[in-house]
Amino acid sequence: MNYLDTVVQGVLLGGLYALFAAGLSLVFGIMRLVNLAHGDLIVLAAYLLLITASVLGLSPFVAAAAVAPLMFGIGWLLQRHVLGRTLGADILPPLLVTFGLSIALQNALLQGFSADSRRLNSGALATASIDLGPVSVGVLPLLTFASAIVVIIALNQLFYRTELGRAFRATSDDADTARLMGIQPQRIFSGATAIAMLVVTIAALYLGTRANFDPSIGPARLIYAFEAVIIGGLGSLWGTLAGGITIGLAQTIGAAINPEWQILSGHIAFLLVLLLKPRGLFPRAFD
């Protein structure tokens, strides 16, 4: 096998997993909410992209500009009216409600779109590649990786350079004291979930253009996202990218050795990190 090629493909695949994970990481980081429907929300966004692109005859990349605000609104309303009600001292209600949401979403998508697997048609882009000396890389994987980096830089800027970001971090630290500053935690949480849904839209764009999807694949994407977040260390977005790359690398290397080992290798890499560095590669200084 071509080692360099395997490594490059693995790193680029990691970009996709980092995109899956960034929204999850954002929501968990701010409100300690584990959204078990995250993967299904990505699939939902992929179907919204599919409808918009096919009905209006647009490229999925253009359709994303229309779907992103829609997902933003869905995220806001979901947090405001459903997820927000589950937050509290007890960690069980958010898990149960998002688990239920996951099942409901899968079945609604199954009802609406059947179990046929679909794909977003990105035209010539789907097969385009760039020759980089010893390896040749696909344009789509490269775009995915670049998007992951842009998303992480943008989220970091938002977090550490804006007033909203300060309010996010303060609310995450201590919602009661944040209220004393005039911050409304509920609005902060709604904003966070809405922003996470923007990232979900971008993740869905690459999920759908790179491979086939059907209503049932959400939970597996959730697992990859989870593993990326935990490998990276909770609360660190660059860590999430590192986590995504770790899983991407493990999967591609595993698949190069034996195609049956692809998924398993990712999980084994995750377990190894948990064993050796239980708090992840880049843990926060405090928690």
């Binding site: 007033e163 300060r166 309010a167 303060a170 201590d174 004291t177 004393l180 005039g182």
Partner: peptide, 25 residues
């Protein structure tokens, strides 16, 4: 405005950011 007992500073925020967040209202 309230100066709460035990100070309740935001650990994720720097000194300056803690002051800035006081102006959020």
């Amino acid at each position: 405005a309230m100066v709460p007992e035990g100070r309740k500073l935001f650990p994720s925020l720097s000194v300056e950011e803690n002051l800035q967040i006081g102006g959020y209202a």
